[in-house]
């Protein structure tokens, strides 16, 4: 099992995250939460662009994950994406970190996996 699976559900995103592509992310994260996966890792290292649409989805899902007893962490955003977190003051709330190891330590030890078993 990879560190990612161990944390619940991991989403490695690529490309641009805006009002056109955001709905897909919202659906995927929403499905994971609905399936009982409340520990969400969102790997943004492959994302070249993000605006308030992506930010809003992440903030909303982080709240829902926390309410379900888990949390959400954002891993490895590029400088321009990191700036969106910094300017909006959401870096702590969204557990923005550089590595998967950091993300896991933020979310605590895994108690369940995202896989059925």
């Amino acid at each position: 099992m990879s560190p990612l699976e161990d944390a619940g559900a991991c989403f490695a995103l690529e490309g641009e995250l805006d009002a056109f592509t955001g709905p897909e992310l919202r659906e995927q994260l929403g499905q994971a939460l609905a399936a009982g996966m409340c520990r969400l890792l969102v790997d943004l290292s492959g994302v070249e662009y993000m605006d308030s649409v992506g930010l809003g989805i992440l903030v909303g899902m982080a709240k829902r994950a926390a309410e379900a007893g888990g949390g959400l962490a954002v891993v490895g955003p590029r400088d321009n994406v990191r700036r969106v977190f910094d300017v909006s003051g959401t870096r702590e709330l969204l557990n923005v970190v550089d590595s998967l190891q950091d993300a896991q330590s933020r979310l605590g030890p895994a108690t369940q996996t995202g896989e059925e078993g």
Binding site: S52, G56, V59, G60
Partner: peptide
């Protein structure tokens, strides 16, 4: 923003 997933 957490409620509405928008607004920022």
């Amino acid at each position: 923003a957490a409620e509405r997933e928008r607004g920022l």
